[in-house]
Design a protein around this nucleic acid. Structure first.
Length: 581
DNA sequence: GCCGTTTTCGGCCCGACTGTTTTCAGTCG
């Protein structure tokens, strides 16, 4: 790593890794928490830590004291960290990776390592299969079986990169490549552009009159660990963490066919080529070709589709899920756009586990054009978040009133709650408390492994509560590793529609829950959606586009989404719900 | 390791669930 290119995120990754390794070694928990706190602060910093360091103000970052500031300085100065090198000499790095296995935590990993010398997953699997784990203190047959099934789940996990990592990386890459000479435009393609939750390679496409400069710039990135192929029109590289990227360069007059081709999906492209053949045209990434060999060049994707007699099909729809048929019939949906969003209905403040005060959150939302924000902190039983008690709610209401007065009519602040759906399906607050709130989101966070029937009934019970307006991140999945609850979604959707309860598309890239498929099904059934960031920090508000993309992949149009409604319409909907319950 | 002080140490991150236990340890959210 060249020191001056180290990002806040790379620093955060480093300190999280230190925390993992220390935890496996058996360090006192508070030291580990300190590293994690520092990592979290760095990751959500608005300014470059590098600049802060140059101003000599590192210790002003929350959670960064003398020791961590010195480590950051060492990283910036030398590109290395002696402390981490010493630590990894003692605790194998492969142990940290094992933390990704569900139900396997630092204590167990440390135990297996110290008692059996296990340092990686295959050794662990072998030990579990031969019944060695059950002989250790605190272990038994069930624990051994649980670990085996955890390893299976981990192996099933895709090696693809979550969109939350791939997207910002691609953005930085594109802005860098855009500075090359002779370049007209640089764009994302592939599954990243289609908005899939994970991507394999990053596909970047450039239009340039001459490819030499941009190819050279692409290949000169110091973060590249391996060049897999290099050529005039296409090069392919691998970065640290297994991230791979390829860059194609095409002449501007052929950019449309190239971009369409590189965006895919493969199945969508097959269907397009079939359509072309029916018109005696052959379609490739370079052009349409007539039987006599002459070409039709397309500089834009619009002209590619137009040549086939089709309207433009948005990338998110290009999955061969009926979009070409719909386009032929003139029945493509008018997809929701990020500009349609007026409200944020799910966000946290320092009243629970958020990092902003009510005023800071409201102002941050206002700066992003939101006209309404719902303060929806956690309820008490999710104790780790410092959830609110009934008494807290009253005091919070007073603060909201004060902030509302201060901010005037620039943004409307409502009091909501993200109320916990307990293991038995009851809610964390009695009905009379919920009745006093402006809007209620109910969510599952615990006991997500209950059997299908039990957890479905639990969620249905919450949906039937007349005070619940929205179900937050319905399945509780966490990407890429943790699968959501085993819900009977058909029953959940039906109940939600009958009770006029909205389901959330949580926009955080680790959730995107509901997913695109369920969102599409739900809207087709007549359901209402909410698209929320679930913000815990200011930068989280900028993750909204992931939720919008997921909705677009689900063929969702703006009217089906509460957040797009004019504020009076939304308030009237809430009032009507409240009056009739 | 950080922080704040009634400032140089003591507190910080809680509770449900599970599996192993017979009173507790580990994982998760």
């Amino acid at each position: 790593m060249s020191p001056d290119r180290i990002s806040n995120q790379q620093l955060a990754d480093t300190f999280n890794l230190i925390a993992d390794l220390l935890e496996i070694r058996g360090e006192v928990i508070y030291k580990i928490l300190a590293y994690r706190k520092a990592a979290e602060s760095l990751a959500e910093l608005n300014n470059d830590a590098y600049d802060i360091w140059q101003e000599g103000k590192l210790t002003q970052i929350p959670g960064v004291g003398k020791a961590i500031a010195e480590k950051i300085e060492e990283i910036f100065t030398t590109g290395k960290l002696g402390f981490l090198e010493k630590l990894t000499a003692e605790v194998p790095l492969s142990l940290a990776e094992m933390l990704q296995v569900p139900d396997l935590g630092p204590k167990k990993i440390g135990l297996f390592w110290k008692e059996l010398g296990i340092t990686n997953l295959s050794e662990l699997e072998a030990a579990a299969r031969s019944g060695k784990l059950r002989t250790l203190p605190g272990m038994g047959e069930k624990s051994e079986a649980r670990i085996l099934s955890g390893i299976e789940a981990y192996k099933r996990r895709s090696t693809r990169i979550p969109i939350g990592q791939a997207y910002p990386f691609a953005q930085r890459l594109i802005s860098r490549l855009s500075q090359a000479a002779d370049v007209v435009r640089v764009e994302m393609a592939g599954s990243l552009r289609r908005g899939k939750i994970t991507v394999g390679d990053l596909d970047i496409l450039a239009a340039a009159t001459d490819s030499a400069a941009i190819m050279a710039l692409f290949l000169s990135d110091p973060e590249i660990v391996r060049v897999k192929g290099r050529g005039e029109t296409k090069s392919s590289v691998e970065y640290a963490h297994g991230l791979r990227a390829q860059l194609w360069v095409h002449p501007p007059e052929r950019f449309g066919t190239a971009w369409q081709y590189a965006t895919g999906s493969k199945d969508h492209n097959v269907r397009l080529r079939e359509l072309a053949l029916k018109q005696n045209l052959s379609l490739s990434e370079h052009a349409f070709t007539r039987p006599d060999g002459s070409e039709i060049l397309c500089a834009t994707e619009e002209s590619v589709y137009a040549t086939l007699g089709l309207p433009f099909i948005p990338p998110e729809l290009r999955e061969d899920r009926g979009e070409i048929q719909a386009a032929l019939q003139g029945k493509l949906p008018k997809l929701i756009e990020i500009e349609d969003i007026r409200s944020e209905l799910h966000a946290h403040t320092t009243w629970s586990d958020g990092h902003l005060s009510i005023q800071q959150l409201a102002e941050a939302a206002g700066r992003r054009g939101r006209k309404l924000i719902v303060i929806s902190d956690h309820s008490a039983s999710l104790a780790i978040t410092g959830g609110l008690t009934t008494e807290d709610l009253q005091r919070q209401r007073e603060e909201i009133d004060r902030v509302q007065q201060l901010l005037g009519d620039s943004i409307l602040i409502l009091q909501g709650i993200e109320v916990e759906i307990r293991a038995d399906g009851s809610l964390d607050f009695p009905d009379d408390v919920l009745a006093d709130l402006d809007i209620v989101t109910a969510s599952l966070h615990t006991s997500l492994r209950q059997p299908r029937q039990q957890i479905t009934e639990r969620l249905l019970k919450a949906i039937h509560n007349p005070h619940v307006d929205i179900i937050g991140h319905p399945t509780g999945r966490m990407l890429p590793n943790r699968e959501g609850a085993d819900l009977d979604m058909e029953a959940v959707m039906k109940a939600a529609i009958e009770n006029q309860v909205a389901l959330e598309i949580n926009a955080h890239p680790a959730r995107l829950d509901l997913d695109d498929i369920n969102a599409r099904r739900f809207v087709e059934m007549g359901g209402l959606l909410a698209i929320n960031t679930d913000a815990h920090a200011e930068s989280d508000l900028d993750l909204l586009h992931f939720g919008i993309t997921t909705a677009r992949r689900g063929w969702v149009e703006a009217p089906a989404v509460l957040n797009t409604w004019e504020i009076p319409k939304l308030l009237a909907w809430l009032k009507n719900r409240h009056d009739t319950r």
